[in-house]
Design a protein around this nucleic acid. Sequence first.
RNA 1: GGCUCCAUGGUCAAGUGGUUAAGACAUCGCCCUUUCACGGCGGUAACACGGGUUCAAAUCCCGUUGGAGUCACCA
Length: 488
Amino acid sequence: MSRVRTRFAPSPTGRMHVGNLRTALYEYLIAKHADGSFVLRIEDTDQERFVPEALDIIYHTMELTGLVHDEGPDKDGGYGPYVQSERMKSGVYLDFAKQLVEKGEAYYCFCTKERLDSLRASDKTESGKEIAKYDKHCLHLSKEEIAANLAAGKPYVIRQNNPETGTTTFHDAIYGDITVDNEELDDMVLIKADGYPTYNFANVIDDHLMNITHVVRGNEYLSSAPKYNRLYEAFGWEIPEYVHCPIITDENHKKLSKRSGHSSVEDLLEQGFLPEAIVNFVALLGWSPSEDREIFSLEELVEAFDYHHISKSPAVFDITKAKWMNGEYIKAMDMERYLEYALPLIRKVVTKDYDLVKIAELVKTRIEVFPDIAEKIDFFDELPEYDADMYIHKKMKTNRENSLQVLRDMLPRLEELSEYSIPSIEALCKEYIAEHELKNGRVLWPLRTAVSGKQMTPGGAYEIMEILGKEESLLRIRKGIALLERED
RNA sequence: GGCUCCAUGGUCAAGUGGUUAAGACAUCGCCCUUUCACGGCGGUAACACGGGUUCAAAUCCCGUUGGAGUCACCA
């Protein structure tokens, strides 16, 4: 078996779809698992949709996710150029297309857009039996007519000449043999009027020229695959291993689209997902390891990946589970890197001079995605308006009266505290609790409520009081007393 | 509509003729606990349907139903 070579061949037309990322990932994993090469090829044959910034997105995303290519536009491996618009300059695609014309496997077509449109329109109205494919009109042009048209500078395309009888069988590593009637095969365009090759044609040519051994792509291309066989056969080329992956869908089981709000890697990044969590999650969409495990680093995926275990049925992109997984990564993150992500977000919400690192630590196990932080710590900057009823808690056995009592008792004691830290505050509270033989909650619930104005907070009374500092927490406790007295 | 593909809990999924049909997310409950989380323990919940083949079918075959994808000089 020859050395494994895979390729990721994105079109620079916008953001990086998660399906694209998964394709890239699988290509990368197949190559690395076999100690082979992973190449990046840019398929910019569509000048209409080309957007230069998309190139940056591609490089940036791949770098971020760790999918480093061995060859590509920026890394020559002897198979260049790696950008199709550059490859075209040598005339390769046209040359190969002409070879096909010689062999009778392709032909020039001078049909206008209008004729093609009317062809399709008439097909639709006809009882639905008719299929919308090209009618081979130009196949029957004489050599003289073709030469005349060419000489006259008439725009032309080159189309594949598919047989109208028999069947073609395409083999896929996941889906097995797929056989279609040749009657179904449209004479697809190989070379466009602007001279660029179509995606389908350029793919076959470049994969061959670059010695690609495994081609991973989405299931949406499955139906166009049989036509490739005819190309490979016409050229007498070895067919690479095709690996079609199941579609990634939204919660409605439709192909994941922009509408879902999380169809691209950039969407996910903006929503506070970690690159390694995205990679991990996407790897498991349509593939599962033999081991019963879900958290994998990229290196571990390389080790464990076996493309034969890719499944056939579509996978819903469950954003809830993705968030859970991201939360697992956040919890496992080392503090230094965690702070790089968390601190900037905390600064947006907490403008006062508190220990932001302590706040960040408090929140680490309580978020799934970074933007979750904001709503959890909004009470630090300013004590929210709250109701006296918030002191009532059945399980803590607190009510307004006994809460007021606790706050009144604790206030002077806290005032006298010289060193204001978790251990000293805790010791003080424990002392009071012991004196009065109370449950912890009886005194800690009122304190935490007074100091936060919220029923749910990250951390407890001690942590919050320490962060707020003596002055601010006492101020808040006095406010609590005032509130409870007013309600009396 | 034609063609192609797919079909195990709400979701991701293990399973390749004989299993009490794993596990994870979500959900519910309990424990831990000053709240919320974290962590621990447990519960609810699935082989789409109908025919075959077989001693034995979630697993193989056929059909039905359902879903998806695709039908461009886009990729």
